[in-house]
Design a protein around this nucleic acid. Structure first.
Lengths: 302, 302
DNA sequence: ACAGGTTTGTCGAGGTATTGTCAAGGGTCA
DNA sequence: TGACCCTTGACAATACCTCGACAAACCTGT
């Protein structure tokens, strides 16, 4: 089945070889003898592919059951993430503290130059992971707990958005780099999450098409096709209406060419992880994971 | 196993050599004879690698057990952090190579965006120490050896100057930060050296007064006094006339308030180190040393 | 300073195991 | 009918394996 090769990223030959040689999956057959894969088969094959992508060798992982595979893949992939995830330093802690102080004093200019300095000092990946993201989260928490007024929170978020835009524009990328479409669904915080994704992708040497929020699936798919994108990344934060969200993402998946990877992250993605994964969406827990994934799609990043 | 080389950062050859020569680990074997490493093996190998990375030699650490290794590595690495010179990474090597390629192709725009990306990716200190400085040196060498024409060299230097200016301006610093005056004596390469110093100082949170080249001692002293500078840094490259250089620096020292530190670096400073040191000038061999010194004068840098 | 010796990472040659891919000839499906 | 899929049996490319040798870096003792 053609569908399966697209979904799993394996060639038809490999599919048959694995079945014949190791009995990796045993799909039903149509009356005429053609393979009919179930959703479980596809999931299993995808897991096997991810395991082999990490360097495992088929003959050794093919005997594992679903849960063991999930564990193995999670471990391998997170080991890889851990290998290059920027560690929180005490410098980062100092930036965080100064940043909070600047926000409390409504000192937008001070905050902006502080954050730009942090970005240059720590490097973009470390700054994003250990300063900007935590700061954003802290704004949100402090606001909910009444330690900051909405005005403070807005000011802080706006400055972070500006700094992210600066980082994104500072390093423009060759026209021939692979493209990724970054999109959101609606709302203002959404857009910040998407900006984080965009900066991360640019840092890995990708060409980024940043589509604002609130776009229907067709528009996103059309943009991806026109830009010849290799991937589409969605930032899902508020699950405004669960049903609609999952449905819309599913629709997008169907509209995209099947060799375009659809990636989702954020709380909204976590919550619906099972359905989304089954629909062929790659769920990522955080930016370091995204970084690793992008690198595996386009190693020549730097 | 591929997995192991990824996770430990050791090559397959080294893995086998250690096993054969020292019995560092003794992995199980598959029926076909391939090595099957356990998680403990991987941990142990990683520790061994870290120990050797710190300069230990294998034969001496290979006999230690896990806990001893952990202690040893922790000690070595913390000593390393104290020294905090950014280590050259292979990312840096890639940037260097692409940078040279861009220069050979006279692709100024490409070089500029590459270097800005490097700065954001690695962070300013690491970028300056492991990309920009080596690149500058390489331009010089290649030019002397006829591998680059003067035009290439000039183009490269000009782009580096622009990138340094961008880095310097990106993070402007609070009015209340301590100030340092950065000056040179004459010539165009001089100015690049001084720009490197300026960027380093800005990165440490200092307010920088960048005075162009070719200023007499009185003018520098006057500027330092007016800006209430804590230090004056000189980049001494061509010792145009040795006698004049030493004399002029001595005069500057005399004109400056005695609580203002006078710092000098570069080949010109190295050559006259004894006299200059005797005159009360602090000589520094490279930028990491400067960074440490600045930090000791103004710890709240970040 | 310099000739030996040791340590250690890397490479090549020659071989086996594993695994992806291909060609040929024929069947299935809309 | 044409596009797609099937099976089988090669085939080729990787990936690992061992062993032996080499070269650079480092350490000696003179």
């Amino acid at each position: 089945m053609r569908v399966v090769t697209r979904r799993t990223g394996l060639t038809a030959d490999v599919l048959r070889a694995w079945e014949k040689r190791y009995g990796a999956v045993e799909p039903e057959r149509s009356p005429g003898g053609q393979r009919l894969y179930s959703d479980d088969d596809i999931e299993r094959l995808t897991l096997l592919r991810r395991a082999t992508d990490q360097g495992r060798n088929i003959s050794q992982v093919v005997g594992l059951d679903r849960d063991e595979l999930v564990a193995l893949v999670a471990e391998d992939e997170s080991a890889q993430v851990a290998a290059d995830a920027p560690a929180a330093s005490d410098e980062a802690a100092r930036y965080l503290e100064s940043g909070m102080a600047a926000v409390r004093g409504l000192d937008a200019g001070g905050l902006e130059s502080l954050l730009r300095r942090a970005a240059l000092d720590l490097g973009a990946p470390a700054a994003v992971d250990t300063v900007l993201t935590p700061l954003l989260r802290e704004f949100g928490d402090a606001w909910h707990e009444g330690r900051l007024t909405p005005a403070h929170e807005h000011l802080g978020s706006a400055v972070i958005a500006r700094v992210l835009a600066w980082m994104e524009s500072a390093a423009d990328v060759s026209r021939r780099a692979p493209a990724v479409v970054v999109a959101t669904v609606a709302g203002q915080h959404h857009e910040l999450g998407a900006r984080l994704v965009a900066v991360t992708a640019v840092g890995e040497g990708w060409r980024v098409l940043f589509l604002g929020s609130d776009l229907p699936a067709d528009a996103i798919a059309a943009a991806a096709r026109q830009a010849d994108a290799r991937a589409v990344a969605l930032s899902l934060i508020y699950p405004v209406d669960d049903r609609v969200l999952v449905q819309e993402v599913g629709r997008l998946r169907a509209l995209l060419p099947s060799d375009v990877l659809l990636i989702a992250g954020g709380p909204g993605a976590e919550r619906h992880a099972p359905e989304l994964a089954r629909a062929g969406v790659q769920i990522l827990p955080d930016l370091p994971h995204l970084r690793v994934l992008l690198r595996s799609l386009h190693p020549g990043g730097s």
